[in-house]
Amino acid sequence: MTFALSARDLTKQFGDFTAVDGVQFDVHHGEIFGFLGPNGSGKTTTIRMMLGLLQPSAGEAEILGMPVREHIGEIRPRVGYMSQRFSLYNDLTVIQNLEFYGKAYGLTNTELKASLAKALEMSGLTGRENALTRDLSGGWRQRLALSAAILHRPEVIFLDEPTAGVDPVSRREFWDLLYQLVSENITVFVTTHYMDEAEHCHRLAFIQRGKIIAYGSPEEIKTDMMKAQVLEIEPSDAVRAMKVLRALKNEAKLPIQEVEYYGALVHVVAPNMKKHKKAIAAGLRKANIDPGQMSIIEPTLEDVFIASMKAK
C-alpha cells in the first residue's frame, strides 16, 4: 500500500550544521501524524523539504506516492499548508483572504462560492466576512488560516505549530477541527511542542537535534521507550523531598533517572521501580519527610520524552 507521506533518509545541511539528519517516517492516509520536538529541532525544515520549498541535501520526500522533487507541480494543488507564522494578510478582510487563497489554488468562481460558505461555517466566522483579519483574536485567526489552507479540498495538510500562542480553549477547539478533517479522509501532518497535544495524534514522531528519537502510536512509544517507571509521591514537604531525592540521584545511591515537580506531587523516574520503592521511602523518612501516598503510575508522553531526551 502507498502512504500519504513518506520521508526516506531526509537530510538537510546548512554549512556545517545538520538541521535534519536522516529522518524517516510514513504517514497513513487519513490519520493525524504528530511531529514533535523542542524549538529548533528541525521540524519546520522537515516540512519545508516535504513541501518542496527547500531542496534536501540527501534523501527523498514522497507525497501521495509521488517523489516531491519531480512532481511538485502536480503535488501543490493537492496539498494544503499553514505555515508557522500567521500566514494571512492582516490588512485584508476575512473574505478577501479566503478568496485570494481559493484563487491561488485555481478554484473557479462556482467552486470558490461553495467552499467559502463551508470555510466560514467551519471557522465560525459566518457574518464576520468583512472584518479585518488583524482585528480577530488569536484563536479565530488560527481557524481562519486553517480554513484558507483547506479551501481547495487538499488530500494532505501540513500544519506547522498551528496552536503556538493560542489559549487552551481555542487549542481544544482547533483540535476538534482537525478530527473533523480526518473524518473527511484528509491526512493531517502537524508539528507542535505541546506534549499534551501529542496524545491526540494517531501516530507521531519525536525529533531532537534533527534526529527522530521516537516513532509510533502514543501507546507504542510509551511501552517501547519507557524502560523505567514513574513513582508518584505526595510528600509532606515537596520542596525538601525534591532536594533529598536529587541528592540521592546525584550521589548515585539509587538508580533514579528523573525527579520532577508535578504540582504538590513529585514524580520519580527509575527502572525496576518496585524494587526501589522502599529505598526511596526510607531515604525520605531518614530526612524526616513523610513520603505520604506512593503509587507507580502510567507515564505520560511528556515523562517519556523528557526521559528519552535526557538519555540522549
Binding site: 513541501l51 507541480g73 494543488p77 496539498v79 499553514m82 505555515s83 500566514s87 487563497y101 491561488a104
Partner: peptide
C-alpha cells in the same frame, strides 16, 4: 517580513 511569502510559495502560483 510577515511570513506570507512562504505561504505563497507553497501554492501552485
Amino acid at each position: 517580513e510577515h511570513g506570507t511569502m512562504e505561504q505563497l510559495m507553497a501554492t501552485p502560483i
